[in-house]
Design a protein around this nucleic acid. Structure first.
Length: 572
RNA sequence: GCGCCUGUAGCUCAGUCGGAUAGAGCAACUGCCUUCUAAGCAGUGGGUCAGGAGUUCGAAUCUCUUCAGGCGCGCCA
């Protein structure tokens, strides 16, 4: 077996193209693309841009360039097709390079050092205290959790912040409701539901009696002034809520580095007011103090309400200042619904106006709504779908499938949990995050086709083959055995993992990983379905080469799913 | 009224920093379990890329416009 060299085939071709065309390397790198079909090669150089300067037809240029490439150890063949110059890698070399690369890298395959020494903050989940953790919260939770893993995979230091909604006039309302109708004994038994009940009742009564609103305002004022009894009540609400949330986070296997929510900034807002005042940005308007943003074509940003209390914009600005000081972030990401897009644009604009150039490093990563076929989700009216119920339902459904397919499985509960929860996460991470999701049990519990169970199944099948083979080391591989189309397509996909991670981070879109891993599993399934591996008529060289490919595939599937927060199972 | 977003196969969506015959899953139909797990694989049918105009060698992609839908627009977050 010849010595293996891990190398970057794309870079190699780009360098050759630079020499042949005289175009700068960076420019060539931007131009080259992957052909739409494998038949057309592995890398293509479009010659259209050269047409103007060379005053020749693109096809002629391609033909011309073709003759300059005779191929080498890594480039199998070069072919001009229309205006494209298509490169075909030496399949054997490429297979060796990719599989060896994966073997060495392990779970760090597709990672990078680009983030070294830089910190990315991801604020996500951020449920409201004393309110149910409902299905709508899963969007932020799933997307944020995945983004954090994606950035970390690229070498960035990350900070996961749960910006709890534990402050604001709503707590005045809740305290008012509690004092009127709260029964400590009942609340103790089922905290969130009971608090939700009295909260809903408050809104009902408020419609009849608007003076309730003033009362609530008064309570929040007391809270802001640290009045002992009110504060104690608030602390109680916060404690029991966190305990409930923790249960869901544990199910999802999600943790946070900080729970510094809105209340955390309650004593850090005066500074914001002072800074804005000092810069002369605060103006009086209808009794409130606002920052005018008309020069940016936006409505003004309210900093102090007419009743003297602060507002969420003030808190968000205080939070941004605090985070810059504490973490010196390279990027400060907010995973918050798209309806709040304007709000974030406003506070970033205020931060910029206040003279902080890092305003440009703050980014709002929006996501769509979870809608219901008939009604709209509304906490105020009490019609909510609890996330915990959805997760449990998915686990139960998975349990049924297992019972039917493999009744003799030992760790059914563990497997059901990983698959059921994976299925839900997958549903939320499979499309562009700004797209709304129409909640439907049917699609959420559909385990066929593009889904987490589909990916997990492919992984389990691969692991099963490796187990049967006795978990071989596979050091000396004849990569010539992996040059068929099915094997090669799979190897190309394995190679492109790093690109998928990068593009997912660039656009803060976990679904890029989702699509990547689904396609990977598709190719993997196709491969092992058509190429026998352990059958007695397969010679040893071929068997080992195929096993090496299975091993690499399984490894990358696991790593990719992990970036989505989806776990794998050995058997299913 | 102003602003942002969306409109691609029956359904859910990719493709949108211009490029090769517009892709996938579901649903429908047809094959494959005496060979490594059928939560799988192979295959068939299905599209005026909302409509119109423009820019370009080339447009689902860029510009303008019309229509349809969603979200947001100072004291909630």
């Amino acid at each position: 077996m010849q010595e293996l060299i891990i190398m970057d085939f794309k870079e190699h071709i780009i360098n050759s193209l630079t020499e042949a065309t005289g175009i700068e390397t960076a420019e060539v790198a931007k131009l080259v693309e992957t052909p739409p079909e494998m038949k057309l090669g592995d890398l293509a150089f479009p010659c259209f841009v050269l047409a103007k300067t060379l005053r020749k037809a693109p096809a002629a240029i391609a033909k011309d360039l073709e003759s300059k490439f005779t191929g080498d150890e890594y480039i199998g063949r070069v072919e001009a097709v229309g205006g494209y110059l298509n490169f075909f890698y030496n399949r054997e070399k490429f297979a060796g390079s990719v599989l060896e690369g994966i073997r060495e890298a392990g779970e760090s395959w597709g990672s990078s050092t680009e983030g070294e020494g830089k910190t990315v903050i991801v604020e996500f989940s951020s449920p409201n205290i004393a309110k149910p953790f409902h299905i709508g919260h899963l969007f932020s939770t799933a997307v944020g959790n995945s983004l954090e893993k994606i950035w970390r995979h690229l070498g960035y230091n990350t900070v996961k912040i749960n910006h709890l909604g534990d402050w604001g006039t709503q707590f005045g309302k809740l305290i008012s409701a509690y004092k009127r109708w709260g029964d400590p004994a009942v609340i103790e038994k089922d905290p969130i539901n009971e608090l939700l009940k009295i909260y809903v009742r408050f809104h009902e009564e408020e419609e009849k009696d608007p003076s309730l609103d003033d009362e609530a305002r008064e309570y929040f004022k007391m809270l802001e002034e640290n009045e002992p009894e009110t504060t104690k009540l608030w602390q109680y609400f916060r404690d029991i809520s966190l305990k409930e949330f923790e249960r869901v986070y544990n199910m999802l296997n999600i943790s946070f580095d900080s729970y510094a929510g809105e209340s955390f900034y309650s004593d850090k807002m005066q500074e914001v007011v002072d800074i804005l005042d000092e810069k002369g940005l605060l103006v009086e308007s209808e009794g409130a103090r606002v920052v005018d943003l008309s020069d940016k074509g936006m409505p003004p940003c309210i900093i102090i309400k007419s009743d003297g209390a602060t507002i969420y914009a003030t808190r968000d600005i205080a939070a941004a200042l605090y985070r810059k000081r504490t973490y010196d972030f390279y990027k400060n990401i907010y995973v918050v619904g798209t309806p709040q897009a304007l709000h974030f644009k406003q506070i970033f604009a205020v931060i910029e106006k206040a003279g902080f150039d890092w305003a440009k490093d703050c980014e709002h990563v929006g996501f769509g709504l979870v809608k219901f076929p008939d009604k709209k989700l509304s906490t105020r009216h009490g019609d909510v779908v609890f996330l915990e119920d959805v997760l449990n339902e998915a686990i139960a459904k998975t349990r049924e499938v297992i019972e039917e397919n493999s009744p003799e499985m030992e760790n059914k509960d563990e497997v059901a949990k990983k698959i059921g929860i994976g299925a839900i996460l997958y549903t939320f991470l499979k499309n562009n995050r700004e797209k709304d999701i129409v909640f439907s049990w049917d699609s959420m519990l559909d385990f066929e086709g593009e889904s987490a169970p589909y990916c997990q199944y492919g992984y389990a099948r691969g692991r099963s083959i490796l187990r049967r083979a006795g978990e071989p080391e596979l050091k000396e591989i004849d990569f010539k055995k992996l040059t068929g189309d099915e094997e090669y397509a799979l190897i190309r996909q394995l190679d492109s993992f790093g690109a998928a991670v990068k593009s997912a981070a660039e656009r803060n879109e976990p679904f890029h990983i989702n699509r990547y891993v689904t396609n990977l599993v598709k190719l993997f399934n196709k491969f092992y379905n058509s190429q026998p591996i352990l059958r007695s008529d397969v010679d040893e060289e071929t068997r080992n080469a195929r096993l090496a490919l299975v091993k690499a595939s399984v490894s990358v599937i696991k790593t990719a799913l992990a970036l989505l927060g989806i776990e794998t199972v050995e058997k299913m």
